[in-house]
Computed example of a mutant assay.
Amino acid sequence: MRIFPQTLNRIIEGSGLNLHNISQASGVSDTYLSKLAKGKINRPGKDKITSILLALNFTISDINQILSNYDYQPLCREDIPDILKNNRARKITGGNLPQYDHIYFDLLLVVLEQIGVRKFWLKTGPVAFLCHENCI
């Protein structure tokens, strides 16, 4: 069995946050993070890696580089539902970590690129209006 690098463990340790705070911010369970920290999970799931790194405010390009350490392909449209599922489990109750909307915007751009969207308009507020190649 291949032993993967402990990249994610080093990032978690270097964050200066405890596992519970990371769990709350990422939506990844305390149990999973604990097993990961103890080396009981050799190859974490792509969605888990991404959710943890998003919670720690990594950019999409940095996340893709780390995913390559675990022999995963870069993020694509098919990955988004699992990441969003983790995101819905987040329990941010205070100012533990800064959450940057640009990361989620970058995730949206990954999806748009994959489905061939060439133009889109962004309106102020939480709603993005999309225009596919064939619209006026």
Rank of each mutant, 00 (worst) to 15 (best):
T7M: 00
S51R: 02
T59H: 09
L130S: 04
C131F: 15
N87W: 12
S26D: 08
I12Q: 08
L108H: 03
S15I: 05
H102I: 12
R10A: 07
E78L: 08
Y70W: 01
L97F: 06
G95F: 12
I12W: 05
D101T: 11
C76S: 13
R118V: 12
A55F: 04
S34W: 07
G94P: 03
C76Q: 09
M1R: 05
N21E: 14
L17I: 11
R118E: 15
S68G: 08
M1Q: 10
P98C: 12
Q99T: 14
D62Y: 09
C135S: 15
C131K: 15
S34E: 13
A55C: 05
L122S: 14
I22G: 01
C76E: 01
L112A: 05
R77K: 13
Q65M: 09
K38P: 00
I66R: 05
L19F: 04
Q65D: 06
S15H: 04
L97Y: 05
F105I: 15
N69Q: 07
Y70D: 02
I115R: 06
V110L: 02
H132F: 15
L33C: 05
R10N: 00
A25E: 11
Y100T: 03
K85E: 05
Q114A: 14
P5I: 02
I49Y: 01
L17G: 05
H132N: 15
N96A: 11
K85T: 14
P81Y: 03
N18V: 03
Y32V: 01
I12S: 03
R2F: 08
H20Q: 14
L107G: 01
N96L: 10
S68Q: 03
C135Q: 11
I80W: 06
T50M: 09
D79L: 04
L122F: 09
L36Q: 00
I22P: 09
I80G: 00
R88K: 11
Y104Q: 10
I52M: 08
D106G: 06
L108M: 07
T31D: 12
D79A: 01
G14I: 05
A55Y: 02
N42F: 01
K46A: 05
L122T: 14
T93F: 03
Y100V: 09
H132G: 15
Y72N: 06
I103W: 07
F105S: 10
S34K: 10
E13I: 02
M1W: 02
T31H: 13
L67R: 00
N96V: 13
L109V: 12
F58C: 00
V117C: 13
H20N: 12
V28N: 02
Y32M: 14
S26C: 02
I136R: 15
E78P: 04
Y104A: 07
L8S: 06
F4K: 00
Y72D: 00
T124E: 10
K35Y: 15
S15F: 04
N96F: 10
K46H: 04
L130K: 07
I11H: 02
S68T: 04
K91Y: 05
Q99E: 14
I3Y: 08
E113T: 13
H20Y: 14
A25R: 01
Q6K: 08
Q6M: 01
T50C: 10
K91V: 11
N9F: 00
V117L: 07
G95V: 13
I66H: 07
T93P: 00
I63P: 01
A128V: 14
Y32G: 01
K85I: 13
S15C: 07
E113M: 02
E113W: 10
